[in-house]
């Protein structure tokens, strides 16, 4: 256990050393490129792996699934393993599905729900880099990727999480990993693979009765 802590500490120091903050000019250029790519994004689909540390329960939750996004208002988050569970957001409606059963919720009156949904969509598309009112953004270069570190400016957002780190592929200017750190220190890491941008997605995929 002692050695594990030591290895983790050394790894953290080495990782931090491997990160190079981008200059103001570089940073501006990187943000512009990511935002331009996000602006052109009509659809996005990928596989995801979600890892969540729950320190209170002394456990790590690992799940995998598929994600579909369309036109800034529809998001389908479909867990396929270890359990089947679907979260589908379309406009003001949310559909939750598991075991062939669905529940529909209206979210138009919930400000927090809307805020969380917006952050979810803006993080996976990279649009949150332009949310300068919401976040203080620092750009870093880490090996072959860019890392955007977002610290919430508003008190309301700071209550939900203390930091978001977006790992971005410089070639495609899309996010490949989202790390979300909570106030309690618990971390959620979402890794996205098989990313397909702007491929046609049928509206039926996002249909809510």
């Amino acid at each position: 256990m002692k050695y594990l802590f030591l290895i983790t500490a050394i790894w953290s120091v080495l990782s931090a050393a491997a990160q190079k903050p981008a200059s103001a000019g570089e940073s501006k250029k990187m943000i512009e490129q990511v935002c331009a790519a996000a602006g052109k994004m009509q659809t996005l689909q990928c596989d995801f792996r979600q890892e969540k540390r729950l320190s209170l329960l002394e456990t790590n939750m690992v799940s995998t699934g598929k994600m579909y996004y369309k036109g800034g208002k529809a998001l389908k988050w479909e867990y396929v393993s270890p359990y089947a569970y679907t979260f589908l957001l379309n406009g003001d409606k949310v559909m939750l599905g598991s075991q062939g059963k669905t529940d529909v919720i209206q979210v138009n009156s919930s400000k927090t729900f809307k805020q969380i949904a917006r952050i979810m969509m803006h993080s996976i598309t990279g649009k949150c880099l332009s949310d300068t009112e919401d976040f203080h953004v620092t750009m870093l270069v880490e090996g072959n990727e860019w890392v955007a570190e977002l610290i919430p400016r508003q008190k309301e957002l700071a209550q939900l999480f203390t930091r978001i780190r977006l790992h971005i592929d410089p070639k495609s200017q899309t996010a490949t990993e989202v790390e979300l750190t909570e106030k309690s220190g618990d971390l959620t890491r979402i890794t996205m693979t098989n990313i397909k941008k702007n491929t046609p997605l049928d509206d039926a995929l996002f249909h809510i009765d």
């Binding site: 969540k52 329960l57 456990t59 949310v94 969380i116 979810m120 993080s123 979300l180 909570e182 618990d186």
Partner: peptide
């Protein structure tokens, strides 16, 4: 909405409720 994890044992238990994106 979200995922709820409940752990119970002889002394009591603990639970976490977090949304699909991991926000608690």
């Amino acid at each position: 909405s979200g995922i709820c994890i409940i752990r119970t044992d002889k002394d009591g238990g603990a639970m976490s409720l977090f949304n699909e994106f991991g926000i608690k």
